[in-house]
């Protein structure tokens, strides 16, 4: 049984132009101990999906799904209180904008204190403070923060984005979650420290069996750190399957375009030649095309594409396209 099982998740909101489906029937599942990548250009609704899983979208958004299950429990039918219990303890999330994810008016140390799960504490009341400090210190060291004293005394605006992100990661792993949702965890972290964070995730995954949903737009990270991926475009899932398989043989034109934008994907690419890219740009939410949302930009689009393509499955590899790339084409380019 998958740990997280999402079937046809739609997220809508009311705009002056009527109700808009920002996320349209997305499918996603994560098995226990799996690291799954969720990729797509920015604006494709990755963060929305993550927030819907956490249940922290405000009432302007309408979330509906055929299935939104965590460990067999239907998340949408939980009461706010039950859901809150699950959050933080079982599912944790690292946010995209770290410095704005910390209370600007509170020291980092206090916020860390607050996030420590106290039910693990087995020392007497008077030693709690010390116990917490020790724990926090350990977690901060784990994410690569050396001068924990200074960091704990600081307010978020006094720290760099990278440090804030590390603090956020420290907070989430403090709970020992079973599912970790990392929304672009390393975009603001300097290149050298990125690997450190990914290694930490990998270690959590291997030692503690933490499943990870790694949201990113950086395909190289996906390639090196994830086992399976789901590709989103404009609020729709376009393809999902094993990372290796998809990188070898994408079926969906959008995935293909994404991969071709990676320099090392095309080994035979001559130096200084242009990278191939789809024409046009991501449509705005007010002007979403009907049917397959890639339609206007898709080199393979035909009349049929105004109907929404069904998810198809070929050897454990899902895609939704009326005219998928065939094996030869995939290889040729």
């Amino acid at each position: 049984m998958p740990l997280l099982d999402i079937r046809n998740l739609s997220i809508e909101f009311d705009s002056p132009h009527g109700r808009i489906k920002a996320v349209d029937r997305v499918n996603l599942s994560i098995n226990p101990g799996e690291i799954r990548g969720l990729v797509g250009e920015s604006g494709s609704g990755k963060s929305l999906v993550a927030k819907a899983i956490m249940g922290i979208l405000n009432d302007r958004w309408y979330v509906s799904a055929d299935r939104l299950r965590y460990n067999g429990v239907d998340l949408l039918s939980l009461s706010a209180k039950e859901r809150r219990k699950l959050m933080g303890r079982e599912i944790a999330m690292v946010f995209q904008e770290p410095s704005s994810s910390l209370d600007p008016n509170d020291t980092v140390g206090h916020q860390l204190h607050e996030s420590l799960p106290m039910d693990e504490c087995d020392v007497s009341f008077f030693k709690r403070r010390k116990w917490r400090e020790e724990r926090i210190k350990a977690f901060l060291h784990k994410v690569g923060i050396r001068d924990h004293k200074r960091v704990m005394k600081s307010y978020p605006h006094e720290l760099s984005e990278g440090i804030c992100q590390k603090v956020m990661i420290a907070m989430t792993i403090a709970y020992k979650p079973r599912l970790l949702i990392a929304d672009e965890p390393t975009t603001v972290i300097e290149a050298g420290a990125q690997d450190q964070i990914f290694k930490l995730f990998k270690k959590l995954n291997q030692l503690n069996e933490v499943s990870i949903l790694l949201i990113t737009h950086d395909l190289e990270h996906v390639e090196s750190w994830t086992k399976t991926i789901t590709v989103m475009y404009c609020g729709q899932t376009v393809e999902s399957g094993y990372t290796k398989q998809i990188f070898k043989q994408p079926y969906h034109p959008y995935t293909m375009a994404l991969l071709q934008s990676m320099p090392h994907f095309n080994a035979q690419l001559s130096r200084k030649s242009q990278l191939t890219a789809l024409s046009g740009s991501v449509p705005s939410l007010q002007h979403l095309p009907i049917g397959c949302r890639l339609g206007p930009r898709c080199p393979r689009a035909q009349k049929l594409c105004v109907e929404i393509p069904k998810m198809e499955k070929v050897r454990g590899h899902y895609f939704s396209c009326h005219f998928p790339l065939t094996e030869q084409e995939g290889k040729k380019s």
């Binding site: 959050m87 933080g88 946010f95 904008e97 704005s100 709970y175």
Partner: peptide, 12 residues
């Protein structure tokens, strides 16, 4: 604000 969402996500 974002930090409220984040603290909700931490189960506070």
């Amino acid at each position: 604000a974002n930090y409220i969402k984040a603290s909700q996500a931490r189960g506070l």
